[in-house]
């Protein structure tokens, strides 16, 4: 027994040494690396699954949040970055510092959905001004009841549920509602996991929260989507495929993106093949995972943009709200 033990120990030590030796990486295999937003993840995952079945090319998809994804992307660690908001100036600088150029491709629309408890009858429509009153940094510690937001509402506590600060959803919501990305009160229940928010709002009559449409769609029996009034006088609009396509769900209808490493796009045929597939075959997949595909005209424009391999962003480093896809693409010269 003891000799066996000693032997197994020395074998183990030997194997450990063998492991330590080949620090040089194995020959680079053809793997397409994608990382980034959890909002875009379901679409990319679906495309990756189908593409892998069709071509046997290996694709990996991670979830690091839009910000986390860009960090890896700009270090050149990933080929494609999922993003639920446009790339920001700081990230553009990071990419530049590492010599990473990117091609910005809008791939679908999402409706950032403001949800309330189904038992809440008074806040079925919400104006952007009211949302701002709830969420702006000045509200911290002060706005604690629904009545404080709108005198017509009952004097009940206001329970807020929102996206965590690393998510593109948070950036976009604050930009659209408060007017400045990442500018929000801090005293609310924040989570990167949208199911936490779903359960929070479903379990509390006085709660209000926001997240991507897909989470609302899967939990329609537990939640009520609020209709959004963009400015005084404009109609209240519920999130839906139609209201997103015709552009009336403002300011919370948002395009979501993939960013492709321009060098990989030009020199790695498997990455190019994947993006080709993504842009031409994803429409039914996008619908299946409850997002809204781009209208055909925009889709064609995006494909043309991709074929020309034009690097750069149409946003100039700001999370601008309410831009039309065609305008966006034409800005990139």
């Amino acid at each position: 027994m003891q000799s066996k033990f000693v032997m197994s120990m020395s074998v183990a030590a030997f194997v450990a040494a063998a492991f330590a030796a080949p620090v040089s990486h194995a020959a680079p295999e053809k793997i397409i690396k994608v990382d980034g937003s959890s909002t875009v993840y379901p679409i990319t995952e679906a495309v990756a699954e189908e593409y892998q079945k069709a071509t046997k090319t290996k694709v990996t998809v991670g979830i690091s949040g839009t910000g986390g994804g860009f960090k890896k992307f700009c270090r050149g660690e990933t080929d494609i970055s999922n993003a639920s908001r446009p790339i920001l100036q700081k990230e553009i600088d990071d990419c530049k510092a590492n010599g990473v150029q990117f091609i910005e491709l809008p791939i679908a629309f999402d409706a950032l959905t403001v949800v309330i408890n189904p038992k809440n009858e008074f806040a079925k429509t919400l104006s952007v001004a009211e949302l701002k009153k709830m969420w702006e940094p000045a509200a911290q510690g002060k706005v604690k009841t629904w009545k404080q937001v709108n005198p017509a509402w009952p004097d009940q506590p206001l329970k807020l549920f929102g996206a965590g600060a690393d998510s593109g959803t948070f950036d976009y919501f604050t930009e659209a509602i408060v007017g400045k990305a990442k500018s929000s009160r801090g005293d609310f229940t924040a989570s990167e996991d949208d199911n936490v928010l779903v359960n929070g709002v479903a379990g509390d009559v006085n709660a209000i929260g926001y997240f991507g449409y897909a989470y609302y769609d899967e939990n329609k029996d537990k939640l009520r989507a609020a209709a959004i009034v963009e400015k005084a006088g404009s109609p209240a609009v519920l999130p839906s495929r139609e209201s997103i396509e015709n552009g009336t769900y403002q300011p919370l209808g948002r395009p979501i993106f993939i960013y492709v490493n321009a060098t990989a796009a030009a020199f790695k045929p498997h990455v190019k093949g994947f993006v080709d597939y993504y842009l031409t075959k994803s429409k039914p997949l996008i619908e299946e995972v409850k997002y809204v595909p781009l209208p055909q005209k925009d889709q064609d424009a995006v494909i043309k943009h991709w074929k020309e391999l034009k690097p750069g962003t149409g946003f100039g480093g700001v999370a601008e709200v309410g831009v039309k896809v065609e305008d966006l693409l034409s800005r990139i010269k």
Partner: peptide
């Protein structure tokens, strides 16, 4: 350390 979420192949 960044393990992946969607990986539909096996290591060599």
């Amino acid at each position: 350390i960044g393990a992946l979420t969607f990986i539909a192949f096996l290591p060599p």
